[in-house]
Design a binder for these strands. Structure first.
Lengths: 201, 201
DNA sequence: GGTGTATGTTGACACTGTCAAGATTGAAAA
DNA sequence: TTTTCAATCTTGACAGTGTCAACATACACC
């Protein structure tokens, strides 16, 4: 049923998400207004409120799709069994930061204040976002497994710290603080060198 | 000259900064409005515009004071000559994250989108913020000095990556993503263990 | 004392998110 | 088929925002 012209839109919910994603990608999150979005989709100011309780809920939906996209792009790496862990992490870092930079606005939404601090993350967003981290944490655990020194919650902490590091670099890059994109390569090298070599202990 | 009652406020500029800092500390950055701030200070809606071109400029002033505060609290650590670098970094991590958490809103302002991505950081903010990083980078360089393996820009990269890591952990903590404050201690331990031991190479 | 400049005020404009009440539609019940 | 009903969309309204232009006040200096 391809988009009725008249009254009912047909698939407004998804159209809103798509258009909003497109809009924030080239104008930034804070430029996105419910009214502007509605106009772009060709619908009245408040139509969106029949599909999303809030602006917050719309943002959550966008973020949710972002996590799904993230997993499409990064998930396969978490199934590998790396021989050279440092090389693996170097590549992973690069891929992670590339994702964060290529979908900068969506990335900032996925992990940023507007949803997690101000608004309330949707239950489904909570779920999919934690799943992403859990998958990563499991990967780390698997890599540290059989290590005589690792004990208890150690793997979780390593996962938290390494993810946090990549997140921090991504944010500083995206926001244009301290880091310049020309040095991404060497920063990934250094990050892998620093972070990996003492994982196993 | 203690605060005239009538027309001229006397030291409105600083009063605005102070009150705004107080307001964001207990209501969050996005709740801060020029009008609300003006009312709290007891002045008309647009009075602030004679001291700050923009809301952005006001935010920059707050952030600037934040960097000054940061240096008061952290600067002395950058003058130490650590014997045990891992222990030093463990303590530094803790202090950094404590600062970020104790002044969460101001910290987010200092390094966040509103200023660095959307708005334009003031020249003086640029200066003071870069100075903070440069001091840290120099410290790292000093620590890596005489190290046979370190070469060229390596120290800068190490500084970027380690700062980025602390920033990432701080942001995830402040925004309530993945990390919980109960595990700050062990995360700092792990961060120090991972990041430090291979600095020297 | 008069004048100018810094600082304060009021009015106005366009924009925002969102609620309440009414209009339109397609599908299920009669 | 006709009626009814719930889902969907629209219009009107309200309080709130940042900021500009025009005006008022007050202090500092000739």
């Amino acid at each position: 049923m391809p988009a009725k012209k008249n009254y009912h839109h047909g698939d407004l919910r998804q159209s809103l998400i798509n258009e909003a994603t497109r809009m924030i990608a080239d104008s930034g999150i804070e430029k996105l207004s419910m009214r502007g979005l509605a106009e772009c989709v060709g619908v009245s100011r408040t139509a969106a409120y029949h599909h999303f309780k809030d602006k917050n809920e719309l943002l959550c939906a966008i973020a949710e799709q972002g996590f799904s996209h993230w997993y499409d792009q990064m998930g396969s790496r978490l199934n590998e069994v790396p021989e050279d862990l440092e090389a693996w992490f170097r590549a992973f870092s690069h891929a992670y930061i590339d994702f964060a930079r290529n979908h900068a606005e969506q990335y900032d939404l996925m992990f940023g204040r507007p949803i997690w601090k101000n608004g309330q993350p949707t239950e489904s967003l909570r779920k999919i976002s934690f799943e992403a981290f859990e998958r990563y944490a499991e990967f780390v655990k698997k890599c540290l497994q059989g290590d005589q020194f690792s004990h208890g919650q150690d793997a979780l902490r390593v996962a938290q710290v390494t993810w946090g590091s990549l997140h921090g670099l991504s944010r500083l890059l995206n926001d244009g603080v301290y880091l310049d994109k020309e040095s991404i390569n060497s920063m990934c090298d250094v990050a892998a060198r620093l972070l990996v070599q003492n994982m196993r202990r």
